[in-house]
Write a protein that binds this DNA or RNA. Sequence first.
DNA 1: CTAAGCCATCCTATGTCATG
DNA 2: CATGACATAGGATGGCTTAG
Length: 196
Amino acid sequence: MTDEPHRHESTPDEHGRNRVRKSAEAYRTISEVADELHVPQHVLRFWETKFPRIKPLKRGGGRRYYRPDDVLLLQRIADLLYIQGYTIKGVQRLLRESGGLLHDEIPPASEEERAASAAERARADIPAPPAPRPDRLPELPIDPAPATSNPGHAPAAMPDADSAPLERARAATALLRAAMASVLAELEDLRASLDK
DNA sequence: CTAAGCCATCCTATGTCATG
DNA sequence: CATGACATAGGATGGCTTAG
């Protein structure tokens, strides 16, 4: 089979690099996916070992080519891990329990799942991991990726499809940044007073 | 016998480095 | 860009000893 991953026209990316812009259906290399998700490459490989459902195409030399489906799934995993605060186990269970459902259909944090995940955390005594300051950060429900409910059509991957959850994630990130900046300022003050 | 304290080991979720 | 080995920090777990 000549499953040559298809590329598309080339345009400079936001960094000015002349990067190949791919269509929604295009296959992506690990570096592209890592860039897109803001996750280091080794983390993607690590996830591959933890989530058997992540199965990028491998071509000669062992190079990975991620399908849009894979990218979506990875996006969802990243969201659950980093935004929702699930553990890998929790995400694994979500995927398992969601049966055949994939990325765009991972049960949007039903009460049971929330409870199960909370129970798991309680058992492990995990304090709501990336411990976003509860008094400041907005609740980010596992988005049901509503826009993706156009079965058989353009992959949910692309911009508008997921923009709402993306916006929420961005808002949360901005708040986190602000919180971290103030913590950093405090630490610097402390250090300054210690240096005296 | 039981509770408490200490220590070693394992696990998790990455991160780093070497090498191909 | 790939794989694999090793490192890390914090928490969980289990075994052993000691004191009441």
